[in-house]
Design a protein around this nucleic acid. Structure first.
Length: 832
RNA sequence: GCCGGGAUGGCGGAACUGGUAGACGCAGCGGACUCAAAAUCCGCCGGUGGCAACACCAUGUGGGUUCGAUUCCCUCUCCCGGCACCA
């Protein structure tokens, strides 16, 4: 078992803190690491600190650079332009989260888009494997695998070429569609603003040029892009329909993504919702070509079933074909004409890793005026990041540091410039888990020790990483496997995705569009006399702050909580117990401090009970233990049953990582022990001893310090963490009598004590009068069955819903079914 | 907008394979102890009606399947996460 800890230490938060405090990101980062390490140590986690690493250390990031160079050699790295957010006032590139409502967060300036050269990793080369091997991950939550599969987005379709002539040259406008069966309904084509055809048409049409520019200025994020009004403008260019030969106009549409498929789509307004809206807006023809079960089609308004699969109509020779046949036939026809073929397209895009920022891994490339882009030779690695710079928000400090930028070309030795972009921090987190196997290895990123530890048996991460981080890690692992560095293709066998801890977000908008966030701990809520919230003010100045709702705890929104306060006030055991008890790990958690006191009270009660046991109960312990053999008095048997019932449940819950109910089981056991009858003293002592030992073992992973101490104090053993997990005694769960729950038509109609045997229980239920008041009485109890739960038996007597003479009753399914299940059937309770 | 989740008392949550909804805890109320307070201990604690036994309503909304639905299916609403430069 190995539980390591590393610091994912590069990235924006350090730069922002540096700007705010005027200290270099390195100092801020190392101070934070020291603080958090102390905190983790005081919480008592069993972390192997010998393997500690920080991604901002050259000992780590040199291997990012080394691996980048290996990928470059294998053609997995390439350079092309990419779009970034440009703040014209600060003359700097902004991250998406630094752009708020289209404006820079520090300057309030309108953000522009810029195209700049960047390095890309060819993750799409692994798309097929990344998708297929999701099936080899039974230990991953379904929802994460679904999200990844959707993100990779494999779609089978047809690539269709629409011929056109430009300046006497024959060309093809290529589109990709998954609905080639609707090809005969294509009435226009639309291209992205970045498409070469749009650029060409814009040259001679100032209005169109303005529109193309407007589209290019628009938002960069897909989320914002998707919410734009569907707008377009004709290019004046026409292409030829590849089958019908009709002329079709090409439009520029702001809803067409250059990054997906060919950056162009065929418009089939009859069967695509977006195309329908577009055609309605601009008066383009709508031609229905699919018949869905004969339903009447109207072009007045879009109906969701218009996009359903059906049979081709109005499609000439394709009429009558279903989806599959139509796609096959059309693809074959296009192929024969050289105008298309079946094609698989992926939604997944290559991974742009260049960041125009300081606090990251330098990209090991030198730009030489004569040799071009030259990789830094392995022997010169690492390219060390200077640690004394302080960013001021205006551009990348590296680019302003001549001692970093100016260098010699590794090839020709002449003066050259170092690349000043750094790597996306996802690179750091894509393989750090491998490095834990051999953090001291200075000659390679990993060595043979990685074979022993990999893959990671249990990986825990926030659900917010469901796609990007986990996909990048899977990709990187496969790349390292193909480089011969490791032998596994998947990094994480089992995955637990934690829900996030949420907290309220408070902010003030200041002059120039700047936004300042305030920590909820510094904010006081105002209520009216009915207890309704009416506002919030900052404690320090009493002036109002705005609420931005509830969101993930993050540095950028300043709504985090420091667990140190809990530790200082209550101690690590209480803090741990409270955190574990408050909700299951997968669930999101809205932070609240209420409830910590309860955890503390529980541990105090446990402490008291333990000492009460040692002083007054333990002396009564018989020399020979008799629990297994001797019949206990009713009350104490109940106590023991409670202990073992909770042990059984807690064991199940530990295995499914539902720790909040384990804490609850601990509390139930203590409650039961404290309420147990004190006589006979010897039996009581035995039950108490057994119960306490079970309780301490269940509690030991949650609150290890108190468990360890009491375990020793009570003489159970030296080290509670080394003691085996307790076993449920099935005999402790047995009961002579059970509580019978009586149900009539699924409704609770009474309780009764009854013998354990199901047959006897049912006989008594039949004799008893609990059910006699219900219409039908003995006669009406036709279908009855028993279902058991929690050591009990549920008898449900089904009555015909209406008098049996009624015709309606005879035909009703309820009556029929109740006649079918004429006999009493029984099911023994699972737990008894 | 698209993809993935979630919604249960005043609050966090429990309910395993469809079978007693609200375990355990927090807050609240009442009581004991105390000169008093704190701490601790005992009791009550979803809503409506009823002296009570009990009945009816109730797991975001509306529908469906079932003898029986918090649990399965469909619809809608709201909230959270992701949407490729927060990580």
């Amino acid at each position: 078992m190995l539980q390591p800890m590393g610091w994912d230490a590069f990235g924006l938060p350090a730069e922002n803190a540096a700007m705010a405090n005027g200290v270099p990101p390195a100092k801020w980062t190392y101070d934070n690491i020291a603080y958090m390490k102390k905190q983790l140590q005081s919480l008592g986690f069993a972390i192997d600190w010998e393997r500690e690493l920080a991604t901002c250390s050259p000992r780590y990031y040199r291997w990012n650079q080394w691996l980048f160079l290996r990928m470059l050699e294998r053609g997995l790295v390439y350079k092309k332009t990419g779009t970034v957010n440009w703040d014209p006032v600060d003359q700097t590139v902004l991250a998406n989260e630094q752009v708020i409502d289209g404006r820079g967060w520090r300057t309030g300036a309108l953000i522009e888009k810029r195209e700049i050269p960047m390095y890309y990793l060819r993750i799409t080369a692994y798309a097929e494997e990344l998708l297929a091997s999701l099936d080899e991950l039974p230990g991953w939550p379904e929802r994460v695998k679904t999200m990844q599969a959707n993100w990779i987005g494999k779609s089978h379709g047809v690539n269709i070429g629409f011929p056109y002539e430009l300046g006497g040259e024959k060309k093809l406008l290529r589109v990709f569609t998954t609905r080639a069966d609707t090809l005969m309904g294509a009435t226009f084509c639309a291209v992205a603003a970045e498409h070469p055809l749009a650029a060409h048409a814009a040259k001679s049409d100032p209005k169109l040029a303005a529109f193309v520019e407007e589209c290019k200025r628009g938002p960069m994020m897909e989320a914002d892009l998707a919410q734009l009004d569907k707008k377009g403008m004709p290019t004046g260019l026409f292409v030829t329909h590849p089958i019908s030969g009709e002329k079709i106009e090409v439009w520029v549409g702001n809803y067409v993504l250059m990054a997906y498929g060919e950056g162009a789509v065929m418009g089939v307004p009859g069967h695509d919702e977006r195309d329908f809206a577009f055609a309605k807006n601009y008066g383009l023809p709508i031609k229905p070509v699919i018949d869905v079960g004969g339903k009447p089609y109207s072009t007045d308004a879009w109906q969701p079933w218009y996009a359903d699969y059906g049979r081709c109509v109005n499609s000439g020779k394709y009429d009558g074909l279903d989806y599959r046949a139509a796609v096959e036939t059309i693809a074959a026809d296009l192929k024969r004409k050289g105008l298309g073929d079946k094609q698989i397209t992926w939604r997944l895009r290559d991974w742009g890793i260049s960041r125009q920022r300081y606090w990251g891994t330098p990209i090991p490339i030198v730009h030489c005026p004569s040799c071009g882009d030259v990789p830094v030779p392995d022997g010169e690695l690492p390219v060390v990041l200077p640690e004394n710079l302080v960013p001021d928000g205006t551009g990348n400090p590296l680019a302003k540091t001549p001692s970093f930028v100016n260098c010699k070309c590794p090839k020709c030795g002449k003066a050259a410039k170092r690349e000043t972009d750094t790597m996306d921090t996802f690179v750091d987190s894509s393989w750090y888990f491998l490095r834990f196997a051999c953090p001291d290895q200075e000659k390679a990123p990993v060595d043979e020790r990685v074979q022993y530890w990999m893959p990671v048996d249990q990986y825990i991460g926030g659900i917010e990483h469901a796609i990007l981080h986990l996909l990048y890690s899977r990709f990187w692992t496969k790349v390292m496997r193909d480089l011969g560095l490791i032998s596994v293709g998947e990094p994480f066998t089992k995955l637990l995705t934690q829900g996030m801890v949420l907290n309220e977000i408070f902010y003030r908008k200041e002059g120039g569009g700047r936004i300042t966030y305030y920590n909820p701990a510094d904010v006081e809520l105002k209520h009216d006399d009915k207890g309704q919230r009416v506002g919030a003010v900052l404690r320090s100045d009493g002036k109002p702050v705005e609420s931005d709702g509830i969101g993930t705890m993050s540095k950028s929104k300043n709504n985090g909580v420091d667990p140190q306060d809990l530790i200082e006030k209550y101690g690590a055991d209480t803090a741990r117990f409270f955190i574990m008890s408050t909700s299951p790990p997968e669930m999101t958690l809205l932070w609240s401090d209420a409830g910590v006191a309860g955890a503390s009270r529980f541990l105090s009660r446990l402490w008291e009970s333990a000492y009460e046991f040692r002083q007054t109960i333990q002396p009564n312990l018989p020399a020979k233990r008799t629990l297994a053999r001797v019949r206990l008095p009713e009350g104490l048997a109940g106590t023991r049953r409670e202990v073992h019932l909770n042990l059984k449940q807690a064991t199940f819950d530990v295995l499914r990582a539902q720790f909040n109910t384990v804490t609850s089981a601990c509390q139930k056991i203590l409650n039961a022990l404290r309420a147990a009858p004190k006589e006979p003293a010897a039996a009581h002592a035995e039950i108490f001893e057994e119960g306490l030992s079970v309780l301490l073992l269940l509690l030991s992973p949650i609150s290890p310090h108190i468990s360890h101490y009491l375990w020793r104090e009570l003489g159970f053993g030296k080290d509670v963490l080394k003691a085996p997990w307790p076993e449920t005694d099935a005999r402790a769960l047995e009961q002579d009598e059970i509580e019978l729950v009586l149900q009539v038509n699924g409704k609770l109609r009474g309780h009764m004590r009854a013998p354990k045997s199901a047959r006897a229980a049912c006989a008594r239920a039949r004799r008893g009068d609990a059910l006699h008041q219900w219409p039908g009485g003995e006669e009406g109890r036709r279908g009855s069955r028993a279902a058991g739960q929690c050591g009990r038996l549920t008898v449900s007597c089904t009555l015909p819903p209406r008098p049996r003479s009624s015709l309606a009753a005879a035909s009703s399914s309820a009556a029929r079914r109740s006649c079918l299940s004429r006999r009493f059937t029984f099911r023994e309770a699972r737990r008894s």
